[in-house]
Amino acid sequence: MEPDAQLVHDCLQGEGSAWEELVRRHARRVFNICYRFTGNRTEAEDMSQEVFLRIYKTLPSYRPSFGAFPTWLTSVTRNLLVDHYRRTKRDRVTDSMEDVMPQIENKESTARTPDKLALESELSAQLQQGLSKLSPELREAVILRDLQGLEYGEIQTVLQVPEGTVKSRINRGRIELAKILDAMGLRPN
């Protein structure tokens, strides 16, 4: 039995320490998915808490046959992020590339606050700026593949789309992200 599955089993037996270990083991990864998707640390922290709240409530329904625990956790995270994105869509400026491009100069100047630069490395900040300009479908595919290191099959399970769609989204996401960074004058090396 893999370590995560053992911890899940112990959680279901009522061992509080097992749940704490699960949280400690995966909190950083969940936070990173949320942060890369939302681009906001506070929002990502709230979303991470929401993810684990959902996991805690639905843990009895988890079966190893659904896939490895990290994949299931990523699916829950992704679904909540998509829900959150849809809920807050009206409050945001559209994320489509055509609308965002003319505003890049202004958005860049407001996004590069000293606090942000102090917290993040330059490369991380640049990538985050580019990711925020990507459409949600392409953004999540790139995050899962290139920042979380998931295999195509795992991404297929998380996104619930055919493998061809996964590959296509990853490919288009990478190319668009490179173009966005190039248009912003940012070239990560």
């Binding site: 704490e20 950083r28 936070f31 640390r41 684990f52 920042l147």
Partner: peptide, 21 residues
């Protein structure tokens, strides 16, 4: 770009995140 993203470390989680969860 892909090489850069693969080399990127995970962002550190906020210190109180685990306790908060």
């Amino acid at each position: 770009l892909v090489t850069s993203m693969h080399s990127l470390e995970l962002e550190p989680a906020p210190p109180m995140l685990v306790n908060r969860i």
